Simulated assay, not measured.
Amino acid sequence: MIASRLLLAAAALGLLAGAAPAADNPMRPSPAWDEMRLAVIGTETEPPVDPAILNLEAPMRADNPALVPVRVTQPPGAPPIARLALVIDQNPAPVAAEFTFGPAAAPLDLELRVRVNAYSDVRAIATLNDGRQVMAGRFVKASGGCAAPAGRSGEDARKDIGAMRWKSEPVGTRAMGQLMIRHPNFSGLQRDQVTLLDIPAEFVRTIAVKQGDALLMTMEGGISISENPVFRLAYAPNGQPVTVHAEDTEGRVFDRQFPQGAN
């Protein structure tokens, strides 16, 4: 029952259908980014936008500001990424997530859903293995994503919390893995629709995904990651079981192991 609900949730997000639609919506000048650049990436130098190394797809106008699809990819032969920061300039907490990747995840193909609170550039800044930085992004028209009502509230929202599902399917010489985690990921800006009281922030803080002892991905996330997080990641399978370790802001720890290719 839990697995079926997670699968239905992922389908509703559109992840099972593949990539987020690309649109002709390049990033726009952003005073907010100019002010935070040094704090986020450690330099005032603007990383170059180079589609030969990094691309980001996101819709020009979001159908649901609390479930905005973002896909970050690299073309074949692009240099591997060591770290990636996903930034939504106009969100209350602009750094949506920071990722690291193992060698099996190169070239990168990562998809997730985020909250977008106001018309904003959504940008990914990659640090390559040689220390260079490169950026990609889109301008997304969305409003109110961080305060959008939760799908469930109160104790009902915590029912099955931490339940996970992993699905992996062959894609050419690689595999596309999909991780689904049941968690309300409250942003701290939402209200309980029954009591009308503010809901304190409560979200998945860290995730680590490995196959055997080899790292696939780590994530340090914040309030901008959508409810019931779903991540899709392309990787080179090694036949070993996939393990997931996650922790949330309340100190809960979630651990699961899945056979390679489980669904």
Rank of each mutant, 00 (worst) to 15 (best):
M1T: 13
I2S: 05
I2Q: 08
S4F: 02
S4G: 00
R5A: 07
L8H: 13
L15R: 04
A17Y: 06
G18Q: 10
G18C: 09
A19C: 03
P21E: 09
P21A: 04
P21H: 13
A22K: 00
A22P: 02
A23M: 06
P29K: 09
S30A: 12
W33R: 03
R37W: 14
A39S: 14
I41C: 13
T43G: 07
E44L: 09
E44Q: 00
P48N: 00
P48H: 01
I53M: 11
L54H: 02
L56N: 03
L56K: 07
E57Q: 14
R61E: 15
D63M: 01
P65E: 01
P65I: 10
Q74Y: 13
P75R: 07
P76K: 15
G77H: 14
P79A: 13
R83T: 12
R83G: 03
V87Y: 09
D89A: 12
Q90H: 13
Q90I: 02
N91K: 11
V95M: 15
A96D: 06
A96I: 05
E98R: 09
A104N: 10
A104G: 10
A105K: 14
A106Q: 15
A106P: 08
D109C: 13
L110E: 02
E111S: 15
V114K: 02
R115E: 05
V116R: 07
N117Y: 01
Y119D: 15
S120Q: 03
D121T: 06
A124Q: 01
L128D: 01
D130G: 03
G131M: 00
G137N: 02
F139M: 09
V140A: 12
A142H: 00
G145H: 03
G151L: 08
S153G: 14
G154Y: 08
E155G: 11
D160Y: 15
G162S: 10
M164I: 03
W166F: 09
K167Q: 04
P170W: 05
A175K: 09
M176I: 13
M176V: 12
Q178T: 14
M180V: 09
I181L: 15
S187Y: 01
G188Y: 11
L189W: 15
L189R: 15
L189D: 06
D192F: 04
Q193K: 11
T195V: 01
T195W: 03
L196N: 14
D198W: 04
D198R: 14
I199L: 13
E202M: 07
E202G: 06
F203E: 00
I207R: 04
A208F: 07
V209C: 03
Q211I: 00
G212K: 01
D213F: 00
L215A: 12
L216V: 08
M217R: 07
M219S: 02
E220N: 10
E220K: 11
E227C: 05
P229K: 09
P229M: 04
V230N: 02
P237D: 14
G239S: 08
V244E: 05
V244L: 08
E247N: 11
D248K: 00
T249D: 05
G251N: 07
R252G: 05
V253D: 15
F254D: 04
D255S: 12
R256Q: 10
R256K: 11
R256N: 12
F258C: 04
P259A: 03
Q260P: 11
Q260S: 14
A262E: 05
N263L: 03
